[in-house]
Design a protein around this nucleic acid. Structure first.
Lengths: 229, 229
DNA sequence: TCCTTCTCTGTACGATGTACAGAAACTAGA
DNA sequence: TCTAGTTTCTGTACATCGTACAGAGAAGGA
């Protein structure tokens, strides 16, 4: 119950700023998210933003965390499902949201995933792993492994679409990668060139799922994990 | 044998520019790598750089690739060794070099890993996987999986050391993470808080190796891979 | 009413990437 | 040897960025 404080009423809110940042991100890509741009969208002087956030890094951090919040809210899968399915659902949702919504930002700014929503997602993950029968230590390590994989996948895909602007749909990305690989000199890199065509198609959700399955295989095999299904 | 061309002799070289960039990276961190900074180090006007590279992204790309070159040169492990050891050596070397040398740059700039040295490393990886008995398709997928993991690990660690400057040694990073985790509110995130102490220590080479082992387990188990050791 | 507190604006500084034009240096051909 | 052509670097300039500083104005508490 915060007492109403003196001074003029706030014309903005943290959420409005994040919404504007999000809009900018969708329209112009990660590079296009600037304090001045956000302020312009809100019809406000650039400095007004600094009333709500201490600096740009804070805005980006909150932006990424708000995206993670959406994932957390949508991914409370049924605890009755097999743990592999629950983890897969969480991982896919994370990748998708980060990729289309905040991928560039998450990495370009070196934004640490410290926010409350990031913690909540981590908590859910630990919960599922514990329910799968992993000891706390193994669960912690597994959670870090899975996080690493998701972030790496996002990071690789983001790094590949160099130009600014909104991220192209998956089909376009695959096509672009195929042509890029077609230029690999076979004389020097015979194996890379040989798998070029197939590799191009692997930069997709399907390859992500394949890798995830291998990781889950490894986790299930690692002793402390459950062995059923 | 390139014929000598007209015009004044070049005062610089691509390598000198990359060396200066590298020096700047080590001293001031990823944010400190600027065209103007590089030019200043070389005692040259900023625009002179544009004679050698079309834009900043090209400089960063070449910088990252040169770091990868060092990895490739140092990591032609003995083909007689077990494939797991060879892959582990390659992955560890990659992570180490990217982390201490070009981690921030590799991600902050969204630099695509397209350069010749990146291709060479990928080629080596495919070679080892083929030697391990994987079919070309499985090898391609496995190579992508491993790359993703390494990049994710680097990306996570880089994101955590927020401040600019040279990356602190691993011990300091672990300590910083321990204190950060100590502030996690146990009421809201019981599991995260419970594993805080141990998780802090996992952001290390050791956790990286643990995850890598799980992945290699999954690969070995996935049918097409070799089953021996 | 006055005083305090808060929010937003105007202005400004330093830094960045890089485009443009021009001067100087060098080679190749006459 | 002279000249024309080519290349390299410099000087200057512009747009953009994050953000620091001071101040105006609105709003509540006394």
């Amino acid at each position: 119950m915060t007492r109403s404080r003196p001074g003029p009423r706030r014309a903005l809110s943290e959420q409005q700023i994040l919404d504007a940042a999000h809009r900018l991100l969708a329209e112009r890509g990660a590079e296009g998210v600037s304090i001045r741009g956000i302020a312009a969208q809100l019809g406000v002087a650039p400095n007004a933003i600094y009333t709500y956030f201490p600096d740009k890094a804070a805005v980006l951090g909150a932006l990424v965390d708000s995206v993670l919040g959406r994932v957390g809210r949508e991914c409370f899968a049924d605890p009755a499902e097999p743990w592999r399915d629950r983890i897969t659902a969480l991982a896919v949702a994370l990748r998708t949201e980060l990729l289309v919504d905040a991928g560039g930002v998450a990495l370009m700014g070196g934004v640490p995933l410290n926010g409350p929503n990031a913690l909540a997602v981590g908590e859910t993950l630990l919960e599922v792993l514990a329910a799968a029968g992993l000891e706390p230590e193994a669960a912690a390590r597994a959670s870090y492994l899975l996080t690493t994989y998701v972030l790496g996948a996002v990071s690789l895909e983001v790094a590949e679409l160099e130009q600014p602007g909104p991220p192209p749909p998956e089909g376009e990305r695959v096509a672009a990668r195929a042509t890029a690989f077609a230029t690999v000199p076979a004389a020097h890199y015979p194996r890379s060139a040989a798998v070029a065509a197939t590799m191009a198609t692997y930069i997709t959700t399907e390859q992500f799922l394949w890798g995830l399955d291998r990781i889950l295989d490894g986790l299930a095999q690692s002793g402390t994990g459950t062995r059923t299904a």
